[in-house]
């Protein structure tokens, strides 16, 4: 077995091509148990592509991804949540016609078993399951300060709160690995600060690992145990935040981007 013995997620030699474009060109890294791993890189580095591969939304052109030793890169994407991979979306992807509570409950789908018949007849098995999900939803709404919005249609909430609903929806199934794509995007300074604390709380409470994809360095460097940096689809650094920050390739990649933006 390659990688550290405690690895939860193993990403091996992943290549992702879109037609002629190679978005990711052979990237490997591990995410350990209860580890917060940041994935950084300038725009177009391949972060979202890699993220979508790990969450089962894309098939890699080459390479393997495994969770606790189980190969997952060839499974359909609706299996991921059941295996313990929860995710949020870079741009919100909530169920807009539903209330906040219903959105969070929807996240518990993979934990339920009741089918059409049991649900329509309200068989004891289905009501018991529903009651358990309601309990968990209530606890999560409390944890994320969403209680006062529970019965509000989710589409009416401010952006930052909608992001919290997504987080609650991903957490209710108690994933082993939480994938977050640019969670700080669109948030203001104080909201980003709160987010850093929130991630540590979440890790402690749910005993999970987090793979955090971020364009901006500050949040990642503050919360991550380990950081993986990408540029042009290649891994350019992998280590503690301090190590990665000091890597010349990382500095030039980010300086290059700043020069580009200026």
């Amino acid at each position: 077995m390659s990688g550290s013995p405690a690895a939860l997620l193993e990403v091996r030699d992943i290549v992702i091509r879109f037609g002629g474009v190679t978005a990711v060109g052979g990237v490997s890294f591990d995410v350990g148990q209860h580890q917060i791993c940041g994935l950084i890189g300038p725009n177009g580095a391949g972060k979202t592509s890699l993220f979508n591969c790990i969450s089962g939304f894309y098939r890699p052109s080459e390479g393997q991804i495994s969770l606790e030793g189980q190969q997952i890169s060839d499974l359909p994407r609706h299996r991921m949540m059941g295996l313990g991979i929860g995710r949020t979306f870079q741009n919100l992807a909530l169920f807009r016609s539903m209330t906040v509570r219903q959105n969070v409950l929807a996240g518990a789908h993979s934990q339920g078993r009741a089918g059409f018949l049991a649900s329509a007849l309200r068989l004891p098995s289905s009501t018991r399951e529903a009651a358990a999900a309601e309990d968990q939803a209530r606890a999560l709404l409390a944890l994320l300060d969403l209680e006062q919005f529970a019965e509000v249609p989710v589409a009416g909430l401010p952006f930052g709160w909608q992001k919290r609903v997504e987080l609650a929806r991903a957490l209710i199934s108690r994933p082993k690995l939480l994938l977050l794509d640019e969670p700080a995007g669109g948030l203001n300074h104080s909201e980003v600060d709160a987010l850093a604390d929130l991630f540590h709380d979440i890790r402690r409470t749910f005993q999970l690992s987090i793979l955090l994809v971020e364009h901006h360095m500050n949040l990642v460097m503050r919360v991550s145990d380990k950081v993986v940096a990408l540029n042009f689809g290649k891994k350019i650094a992998d280590g503690t935040p301090d190590e990665v920050r000091a890597t010349p390739e990382v500095i030039s990649a980010y300086l290059g981007e700043q020069a580009h933006a200026a």
Partner: peptide, 27 residues
């Protein structure tokens, strides 16, 4: 009853956002 259940939520979730529904484990 059906629409108030886990299945009903999935039925509506698929209408609202198919990809997110799949990410929630809905086939």
């Amino acid at each position: 009853n059906l629409m108030a259940s886990r299945i009903g939520r999935a039925i509506m979730a698929i209408r609202d956002h198919g990809l997110a529904a799949e990410a929630m484990g809905m086939d």
